[in-house]
Design a protein around this nucleic acid. Structure first.
Lengths: 132, 132
DNA sequence: ACTCAGCTTTACGTAAACGTAAAGTTTAAG
DNA sequence: CTTAAACTTTACGTTTACGTAAAGCTGAGT
């Protein structure tokens, strides 16, 4: 029998290096709905996966509200054509944002290369000066 | 003679599709230092470039304070070895963040592909049902 | 001279994402 | 039994990045 993994809020906060406060806040915003055993929250694998998605979304600049919208859509029984089309529209939109970000990152990377190169040049120049 | 381009705050706000308030706020935070002609702000090409960088940084989730730090470092005469090394350390750090984001984006893209595929399948299923 | 668009400053308001303090509960260890 | 660690709720505080009046200045057109 493969017992399903369980986590306390403390374990989860250590795992992802965030505060328990944050996790409770995400729950308050209805991004997480952990099981309860008495008063305590019990997190399962699906909660852990969700949290991972939340943090990834955050790193990409999505608001918690946006993330919730995606979750809701994902959770919904996508059974009607309008719903499916809404979902497709949203994913397309997100894809556009991500492409923009990819572009931004590439540009910034190039600039970083440039800055680094110049710094290194400067450093070797300084070295040369010290050796004369 | 190539006259250098000048912009009013309104022109700039329209160019980048942001409010004049935002531009003034960036100045308040010392991210922009436009020339003054009497009471009015005059923006030159370098200001436009800066603004572009600000917005790109924002899209990548950098705070205005972080962006300012980068600008300050970039503006500083990087003449001492310690300064150069600080700069290199920071660029390395930013590079790590960007790589993480690249990773995140790729993951999300894959998930979007998945969601889209399933939506499209569902849609064709519905179509099939309607035609029977 | 008038008006009106576009600019200015000053200042208070707001939403998001938590931080933090207070006060109580639960569970394992000594 | 009691102490300590980890959890709980409630609630007010804080930062960031602006929004939104309010009230006045300024230059171009009629």
């Amino acid at each position: 029998m493969t017992q399903e993994q369980q986590y306390s809020i403390g374990e989860l906060s250590r795992l992802f290096d965030i505060t328990a406060r944050s996790i409770r806040f995400y729950e308050e915003q209805e991004l997480l709905v952990p099981e309860r055993q008495g008063q305590s929250r019990i997190y399962h694998l699906k909660d852990k996966v969700r949290l991972k998605l939340i943090l990834r979304g955050k790193r990409l600049g999505f608001s918690l509200a946006e993330i919730k919208t995606l979750f809701d859509l994902y959770d919904t029984n996508l059974n009607s054509a309008p719903q499916l089309k809404t979902m497709l529209a949203i994913t397309e939109q997100k894809r556009a944002v991500l492409n923009q970000q990819l572009n931004d990152i590439q540009m910034l990377m190039i600039e970083l290369d440039d800055v680094e190169a110049r710094c290194k040049d400067e450093l070797t120049e300084l070295q040369r000066g010290n050796n004369l």
